[in-house]
């Protein structure tokens, strides 16, 4: 269970969260965080991970305040938006290093096979293409068994085949009873796999509910036009 209590966050003059209250149960399921650029999606995710420190208010993970804590991150696998790794390490070394840091058993072999990364294992990370780096990023995220997965724009740079692989991977994790929280720009992806949607606009939650509920509320029949409708109403 993740809980934001009266959270405020400003970056310089730009206020991202003003009195944000949100709870995300970790009882399994896929939650999509949607919103235009600069709506606070990444800040939300980074706050959960403790990478962004709120100015006021607190964030709780399983009822415990996360500030200056680190053990709770054992329960979370995180896929960052931009994947840049130390260029001098090889893919294999990077995977071994993250395994070494997490001290958890990992099933990277299956994932390497799935994303056809075997030929790149001994290549240095600096020479990999953006898409291949993202695949390495995905392997690093999915190779551990954790209760919660947090994915920031997971589809960035992926070819259609890998995108399908990723979708299946997310659905498999859901079947295992895990909670997956992800952000995306691709509405069709959110519509296809998510159980619940959180729509953020200027750091405030403008809609939260299932796909069915958003269709009903906006009297539309696809997510793209539903979101467009909410945005129009705002203006």
């Amino acid at each position: 269970m993740i809980e934001f209590q009266n959270t405020f966050k400003k970056f310089g003059k730009l206020s991202v969260f003003e009195d944000l209250n949100l709870s995300i149960p970790s009882s399994g399921g896929i939650v999509a965080v949607l919103g235009p650029n600069g709506s606070g999606k990444t800040t939300l995710i980074k706050s959960i991970l403790g990478m962004v420190v709120p100015d006021q208010g607190s964030i709780f993970f399983d009822g415990k305040k996360i500030q200056n804590e680190w053990e709770y991150r054992n329960e979370i696998n995180y896929l960052p938006q931009i994947a840049t790794f130390p260029g001098n390490l090889t893919v294999h070394e990077l995977i071994e290093m993250v395994k070494d840091l997490r001290l958890k058993t990992a099933n990277e072999k299956e994932l390497i096979h799935k994303f056809k990364l075997a030929p790149f294992l001994d290549k240095k990370l600096s020479i990999l293409s953006g898409g291949t780096k993202q695949k390495v990023n995905i392997v690093l995220t999915f190779m551990f068994e954790s209760r919660m997965l947090i994915l920031d724009e997971p589809s960035t740079g992926l070819d259609p085949i890998s995108l399908i692989q990723l979708k299946n991977l997310i659905l498999e994790e859901k079947k295992k009873g895990k909670t997956i929280l992800f952000t995306t720009h691709i509405m069709s992806l959110a519509e296809e796999i998510s159980d619940e949607i959180i729509f953020l606009l200027e750091g405030k939650i403008h809609f939260r509910g299932t796909i069915g509920q958003i269709f009903e509320k906006t009297s539309q029949n696809n997510l793209e036009s539903s979101i467009a409708k909410i945005l129009e109403e705002e203006e």
Binding site: L49, G50, M51, W70, R73, Y78, P80, L101
Partner: peptide, 9 residues
């Protein structure tokens, strides 16, 4: 950032 998301201080 990748390291910060790991369970490390």
């Amino acid at each position: 950032e990748l390291l910060l998301a790991q369970p490390i201080r």
